[in-house]
Amino acid sequence: MDFDLIVRVYPFFIDAAGVTILLSALTALLGLACGALGAAARLSRFALARFVGATYVSVFRGTPALIQLFILYFGGPQIGIELDAFEAGVIGLGINAGAYMTETIRGAIISIDKGQKEAARTLGLSRWQAMYKIILPQAARLMVRPLGVNLNMLIKATALVAAISVVELTYTAQRYIGSTYKPFEMFLLAGILYMIIIYATGRAVAWLDRRVQIT
């Protein structure tokens, strides 16, 4: 184990971890937005919206995220979409994560007892009001933990953007493995930083989950 080397390169890994965190945060926000839209589409009254929602989930969960990134980043310019690598990473991973979150959000909503909606409608609330005032507040509590699992997967998936040369943790590790031939040291550095990020978000999700439960 070459500790001198670790001491020498760790500042670069800290910077890279910052990029991974920013990337994860932006991807999570876009993923949530796509997931909310996707769930709304999948639960819609309209068959066309349901079809679009189901196709979105099936296609984006049914193909590798890496290929989706490549289509967007390398293929995008051919159809007039020019993005830099970071933007392509956020948009590609966000849409991908949104497909998984769609199912999480939808699952929480449909697990709320049907009687809740029927009672709300009987009391004169519109479908919209019943959803916003009665169903969503209950479903939101059920979503926190499974969305936390989605977030955990998403953070690890941000490593994929190394393949389109975004200088985040995995790319940095890969570059230093290439220039120093010390894979274990570089894995140790990057691995510890990933585990800190994942552990911290896991604790934050657990805290939020406890906060929203009614006991």
């Binding site: 690890k156 998936a157 941000t158 490593a159 994929l160 190394a162 393949a163 943790l169 995995t170 590790a173 890969q174 493995i177 894979p183 274990f184 894995f187 990057a190 691995g191 990933y194 585990m195 994942i198 552990y199």
Partner: peptide, 11 residues
Amino acid sequence: MGTPLLLQLFL
């Protein structure tokens, strides 16, 4: 479980 697969493959 706490690190990305891509990083593990490099290692």
